[in-house]
Amino acid sequence: MTNPHGVHIARLLPWAGSDGKPCFLLTDGDGYLTRIADNVESVQLDMAGELLDHIDDLLTGPGATSDQLRYGLARMSESLRDVKRIADSRGARLSGPVADGN
């Protein structure tokens, strides 16, 4: 995605900084870091789907232990946090670019 000259998007990246705060990339929608972020989002979404399948199997199968369920719930929480960050990032980009004063 290429925007007209001088128009940039502040993209929420699919990872947090070392202090746990959100990371943003000021971008025209194209470039090396944008492609890395796209790839990370794709991996996170694929992993979320695989985790859902695993949890479905665990819940429908016989004899899931409380430790298995607790572990699965912890991974689901992490995955949901990643998916929410992706949704927030994509939603912000849909609302339109911000004009850069340069």
Rank of each mutant, 00 (worst) to 15 (best):
K84G: 00
A87W: 10
L13Q: 09
L73V: 04
V43Y: 12
K84M: 04
M47L: 05
V40P: 08
G63R: 11
Q68K: 02
L69C: 01
Y71L: 04
V40Q: 06
D38P: 07
Q68C: 01
D19K: 05
N39S: 13
D67V: 04
T60E: 11
G72P: 07
P62D: 14
D30K: 13
D19T: 06
G63V: 00
W15M: 09
P22L: 06
R75G: 00
L25M: 10
S18Y: 13
L45F: 01
V40R: 07
H54Q: 09
H8Q: 12
L13D: 05
H54V: 02
W15Y: 15
V40N: 02
L73G: 02
D19A: 03
L12P: 11
A74L: 04
G17R: 15
T34Y: 12
V43Q: 11
S66T: 12
L59I: 08
T60K: 06
L80P: 00
Q44Y: 07
I9Q: 15
Y71W: 09
A74N: 07
R11E: 15
H8S: 11
L73M: 05
D38I: 06
W15R: 14
V40Y: 05
K84C: 00
R70D: 06
R75T: 08
S42W: 08
D28H: 15
L33Y: 09
S66D: 12
D38F: 02
L80D: 13
G49H: 08
E50L: 07
T27M: 05
D28K: 15
Y32V: 10
A87E: 15
G31R: 13
S77R: 15
Y32A: 04
D57C: 00
A16L: 12
K21F: 05
D38R: 08
L51T: 07
G17Q: 11
H8D: 07
T27E: 08
S18Q: 15
K21L: 05
M76T: 10
T34D: 15
D82I: 01
